[in-house]
Design a protein around this nucleic acid. Structure first.
Ligand SMILES: [Zn+2]
Ligand SMILES: [Zn+2]
Ligand SMILES: [Zn+2]
Ligand SMILES: [Zn+2]
Lengths: 137, 137
DNA sequence: GTTGACCTTTGAGTTTACTCAAAGGTTTAT
DNA sequence: ATAAACCTTTGAGTAAACTCAAAGGTCAAC
């Protein structure tokens, strides 16, 4: 299978496949006489792992760590894998918490503003952001 | 007030102040005979607006729009300001939703893994990410 | 036998918000 | 007078994950 076909099957671009190879995520493939990459089902499986890991929120760097464990399963423990997963979850939770603070502040701002066609001179959103005391957060 | 003093008062770096000026967020200041930037309380107020807007989640680009409205309040309506705020809130909500999907998937993965010192050969996290059918999401 | 759809590589651009370095001019303190 | 602590500009680097362009080789079809 050449790169175009694999890309179509995975619904990603050929650029992405070359990018993953270059960055150590996708194993090198064989090349035919013309230098074209020739992929096997093993490569497709590996890509599915990568894409599934992305789906659950892992970054490419984190996926690299998972892959490193995966190819040397004998050298690693369940605990290591779980730790990576829990670490990631904590990062995600922290981001959620920050965004929820944003959401709350923005809601407070929006609720206090009439949103009408009046001039923005007295807009409570602007005046709140100007205000010296932090009402917002 | 020179740049170092303003930076200290705002607890940001002088680089950041120059960066904001260069990118159209902070108004140009006067310069003294030596070419040093000299800031007035007006500039400090403006920076406080910017920093407060950042605190509630606005990006620098969005803050530019807010500032554009703010300096020409007569030309703009409350509705415009509220719309920017609601737009931002929607972006934030979408991001939260995505992260919550991540959080759920990661929790499912973590809960299914024993996390012990066993070899990772049978780790359910790895096998789930390998699996052909999408149990995860 | 040439068009068009593939494939190759290298290198640069995108986004966001800074951060740092280099090379130099100015002010303040001793 | 000289060292330390400021200030200036320009330009480059960072993270993350691609994405695109240029310039060219390969292959199948008509
Ligand atoms: Zn109003
Ligand atoms: Zn308003
Ligand atoms: Zn286990
Ligand atoms: Zn496990």
């Amino acid at each position: 299978m050449k790169i175009g076909e694999l890309a179509k099957r995975l619904d990603i671009s050929t650029d992405t496949l070359r990018y993953y190879e270059k960055h150590g995520l996708l194993s090198f493939s064989e090349r035919n006489e013309s230098g074209y990459r020739i992929y096997s089902p093993k490569h497709e499986k590996q890509m599915q792992f990568i894409l599934r890991a992305k789906t659950v929120g892992f970054s490419l760097k984190e996926i690299q760590e998972l892959l490193a464990i995966k190819v040397e399963k004998q050298q690693h423990s369940c605990g290591e894998v779980k730790q990576l997963t829990l670490q990631k979850r904590q990062i995600v939770r922290d981001k959620i918490a920050e965004l929820q603070r944003f959401e709350k502040s923005l809601s407070l701002l929006a609720d206090a503003c009439c949103g009408g066609p009046e001039l923005a001179t007295g807009c409570s959103i602007l005046t709140t952001l100007e205000a010296a005391d932090d009402i917002v957060i």
